[in-house]
Nucleic acid binder design. Structure first.
Length: 709
DNA sequence: ACGCGATGCGCC
DNA sequence: AAAGGGCGCATCGCGT
């Protein structure tokens, strides 16, 4: 039997995204509704979760489940069992899966227009029933926001409006559920379970538990970073201001300096002698002068700017050596102006041209600093006061998750942002990521699609697919490549780097022109378009199944048609895919499917001590080494946990094991590997360190101090 | 003041 | 014939 449920709570607040429960509303299949205070509801819920035939239907179920678990920790094992049994049904997630099957979860393929499809209960009710239940969302006195006032008040004493607000929406989740089932059946489905529904529903929950836990930052590191960046920002601003590329603007009563794009574009045009790089032009197709960092920095003759930079550093050092006060931004701007004059003489370039280069480079640098300062520093500062609770969107078009408010799936690796995140006292961070997982999922898919995969053979033979690719391009044996790599051979290192770009870039349908830029920006590899074309052929030759793979998507999308992709491994349907997104979805979505499964078992072991891979039958009272740890972040192929210091070693090894077990559910025939480490901060380069055979925290090598004579 | 499109950029 | 995908988030400029 299905039971629609909804909880009303205290307000969601930063640092507390599973707030205290006030009441529960229910609706059964006969439309009978009920309203229960927390104390009435909890014993009832124990009985309901214990009943094997009750399915809970909620909109955004993961929130209600987290609220229930926070209200009564003893419910959590029962909730997780219900998830395992597919008895927690989320109408929001179902709506996303249905939208994905219609091809509406990603932006429009041909125009790139944002669809902005909404998944709130109100939006779903509107879509399915053309009924508006949004009500008066703006009323600050709405009961919706005031249930905390009714905590511990018997329902009989509630104002009518508080009661009716809670009960008004109680019927909708079940109604939406049925409408979704009808849509599924109309689309040729059977039963009421949407393909991939249960694993995605579980993923939504464990990712929400990660949000609830949240991450903290280190006040000292954050303040230091803030000061450094602010000083750097001031310095650059002084130079750019002097060149009239910045102008003052009032923002929230505060004066800020904002870029004058028209002036900047004029400078770009001049630096490129009237032939500046142009942008694509958006959907209206009107190209504009590009102002991206690459355009700005590569306008200059690099050796001239390097020379100026060196002179500037020497000037600063000299100034410091003489014990003078630190130069202000304005002073440095003047120094640079002078240096332009000298450089113009030394390199025989017009002075205004040199100055223009310098300004453009500074603007490019400025946006980087500005991004760190405006996007990340405020978040980091918050984290010193309370946990940062990022929100995960459990399902996007590719099958992956996304993260927002803040997006902790993309903090820069450089710039010292990540290093500000620290575990709570008594814990350490455990990092574990899959090794070239998208190649494993690609190979697995090829095995299924064509019955063969050279890539699968290489990976299963324990070869490094990038080194293998490199060996083939150099026409040497894999063994020789290994030996040369060990000996520090430079050519092998270069070719392996190129191979990474090749192996990661071409499967998704990358063409030779874009590959050149992709390889340069992402892998520091320089090559011509012609060479890129040859490398693509090398790649097809190395992994013959890739020709079949691309032929398949080419055939399916002849004449720019789209088709509905059935995700191998999970059966999820993605509608309206073309050549590139289709090619990409298969391996990217599959990797997402694997880590979503793994994360569920890991979370169960963290909170309960047991999962299907660590059962009471097998281990009795001995709980998993992960018990007491917390999953905090998921970055597509990597998990970051807080693990208790005392058994960080055991927890991290178990983390790796379960990541592999979970992934193997969707990658059964290709070997899956991980890399892991523990550390006292979020260090990108962390690698395993062993002391007495046990994992010890990785620390960066101390930077050698430059001693000035 | 606010919304929106274009642009740019971070990550995997 | 040729084709990285796909997120979130920031700034700038323009229109309402």
């Amino acid at each position: 039997m299905r039971l629609g449920i909804d909880t009303e709570t205290y307000l969601i607040a930063p640092g507390n995204v599973a707030p205290r429960m006030v009441c529960l509303t229910t609706c059964d299949e006969d439309g009978e509704v009920g309203l229960f205070t927390r104390d009435e509801a909890l014993p009832m819920l124990h009985a309901l979760f214990d009943a094997p035939n009750i399915e809970f239907v909620a909109h955004h179920a993961r929130f209600d489940m987290a609220v229930l678990a926070a209200a009564d920790a003893a419910l959590l094992p029962k909730i997780m069992r219900a998830y395992d049994e597919g008895r927690v049904r989320c109408t929001m997630l179902r709506e996303k899966l249905l939208a994905l099957a219609r091809g509406e979860l990603a932006d429009e393929g041909d125009t790139g227009v944002k669809r902005n499809i909404k998944f709130s209960l109100a939006a779903c009710v509107q879509r399915h029933f053309d009924v508006d239940i949004s009500g008066d969302k703006k009323d600050p006195n709405a009961w919706r926001l005031r249930y905390s006032e009714l905590d511990n008040v018997p329902v009989s004493d509630w104002p009518d409006k508080a009661r009716t607000y809670a009960l008004d929406d109680a019927r909708w989740p079940l109604a939406v559920f049925d409408a979704q089932t009808a849509e599924l059946l109309a689309g040729g489905g059977s039963g009421d379970v949407i393909p991939d529904e249960a694993p995605q529903t579980r993923a939504a929950f464990w990712l929400y538990l990660a949000s609830v836990r949240g991450v903290r930052t280190d006040v000292v590191a954050v303040n230091t970073l803030n000061e450094t960046l602010t000083a750097e920002y001031e310095r650059i601003n002084a130079l750019v201001k002097a060149a009239d590329v910045l102008r003052p603007k009032m923002e929230k009563g505060e004066m800020v300096w904002t870029k004058n794009m028209a002036a900047l574009r004029e400078r770009v045009v001049s630096a490129y002698d009237g032939n500046p790089p142009m942008t694509g032009g958006g959907k209206k197709g009107v190209p504009a002068v590009a102002t991206d960092r690459d355009t700005l920095t590569s306008a200059a003759d690099k050796k001239v700017l390097d020379w100026i930079d060196k002179q500037e550093q020497e000037h600063i050092a000299e100034n410091a050596a003489k014990g003078r006060p630190k130069l202000t931004g304005e002073q440095l701007a003047l120094v640079l102006r002078e240096l332009c004059c000298v450089a113009a003489y030394v390199f025989e370039v017009p002075e205004d041209r040199v100055y223009n280069w310098l300004v453009l480079a500074a603007v490019g640098e400025r946006s980087g600093v500005e991004k760190l300062l405006n996007t990340y520093v405020p978040v980091l500062l918050d984290g010193t006061q309370r946990p940062i609770n990022p929100s995960f969107n459990e399902l996007v078009g590719s099958g992956r998750s996304s993260c927002y408010n803040p997006n902790l799936q993309n903090p820069p690796r450089k710039g010292g942002i990540r290093e500000c995140f620290i575990p709570r006292p008594g814990y350490m961070f455990a990092f574990c990521d899959y090794s070239f997982i998208e190649l494993c999922t690609l190979a697995q898919s090829c095995l299924e699609m064509f019955g063969e995969s050279a890539m699968a053979e290489a990976i299963n033979a324990g070869l490094d697919p990038h080194l293998d690719m490199a060996a083939s391009m150099l026409s040497i044996s894999y063994e020789e490549a290994v030996a040369r790599k060990k000996a520090g051979d430079k050519q092998i290192a270069e070719y392996r780097q190129l191979s990474k770009a090749i192996n990661f870039g071409f499967p998704g349908g990358l063409g030779k022109a874009k590959f050149v830029e992709y390889a340069r920006a992402g892998y520091g590899v320089t090559l011509t378009e012609h060479e890129a074309g040859r490398r693509k052929e090398d790649w097809y030759k190395k992994w013959p199944e890739m020709r079949l793979y691309h032929n398949y998507f080419g055939t399916m999308t002849l004449g720019d048609r789209t088709f509905a992709l059935v995700q191998p491994g999970s059966g999820r349907i993605r509608g309206e895919v073309g050549f590139c997104d289709g090619s990409n979805s298969v391996f990217q979505g599959r990797a997402a499917d694997g880590i979503k499964r793994a994360g569920w078992y890991i979370t169960q072991e963290c909170y309960l001590g047991y999962s299907k891979y660590w059962t009471k039958a097998e281990h009795g009272a001995q709980k998993s080494p992960l018990f007491g740890s917390f999953v905090e972040l998921m970055l597509h192929d990597e998990l970051i946990l807080e693990v208790p210091e005392g058994f960080a070693h055991e927890a991290t090894l178990r983390l790796s094991e379960v990541m592999i077990l979970g992934m193997r559910e969707v990658v059964p025939d290709v070997k899956v590997g991980t890399e892991f480490a523990i550390a006292r901060r979020w260090y990108k380069g962390a690698s395993p360190v062993y002391v007495d055979g046990r994992l010890a925290p990785w620390e960066p090598k101390p930077v050698a101090k430059v001693v000035t004579p």
